[in-house]
Amino acid sequence: MTATRILTFIPHAVGHSTLGLMRLVGRVTLFTFSALSHLLRPPFYFREFSHALLFIGYFSLPVVGLTALFTGAALALQIYSGGARFNAETVVPSIVAIGMVRELGPVIGGLMVAGRVAASIAAEIGTMKVTEQIDALVTLSTNPMKYLTVPRILAATIAMPILAGIGDILGIMGGYLVGITRLGFNSAAYLENTRDFLEAADVISGLWKAAAFGFIVALMGCYHGMNSGRGAQGVGRATTNAVVSASILILAANYVLTEVFFSA
């Protein structure tokens, strides 16, 4: 009896969670297509867009800038101690630059923005849903997808590459400051080394990634907000889900995009 129960429990649990996952993927895909189709059709709410751009882009600058600066500084120390094992300390400037621009700038920036922006979008839209403000929008002849989702997704997709670009610069600066103050690099040589090894393709691939991460962050914030459960608990769960799913999707998308750029 117990043996059969255990035997049926496992496939049941696996099947149940697989179906749940499939349902979620389906819903998110439909939501994405809906958002994209609304993006292409008027009306376009410019005021909402500029508000979102200010909030997502400008106000994320300190967070993204500081994390990039410290990441670049730590990276320089690590590569120096790693490089010392085979007498290759001189690679510090180029590896810091490439590491920041291709990988850490967009990914760490994306994750920080996921924490800041996906959470606040989900909480805001979730609260609007719970307090019937979304229904009120509809009765006032305003499509919530156009009014709430499209401006945020567009703003995040545009703002994120700019943030990542600034993060790249500050990260390299972090490495540079550590390099010349702690590791005994010559200032001019460090900068020359950075410039010589960095290619335009490195920077551009990183910025494309950042745009994709911005899209993911706003999409997850809007999706979980729009599908928020009832009450304070529902909004809390929507916020958590938005941050967690945005972070996982960023890391997964990072791998996929790196493969694409790697084989290109």
């Binding site: 009306p43 609007m128 307090t131 019937e132 403000q133 009120a136 009765t139 006032l140 002849s141 305003t142």
Partner: peptide
């Protein structure tokens, strides 16, 4: 249609007059 919601459902990011004039500030 016009609708008065149970909790008011006022948009808390906007001032009172912008709430009232919502329909008159955008769309048809």
């Amino acid at each position: 249609f016009g609708m008065l919601f149970q909790g008011g459902a006022l948009f808390d990011s906007m001032t009172v007059w912008q709430n009232v004039a919502f329909r008159l500030l955008r769309g048809a």
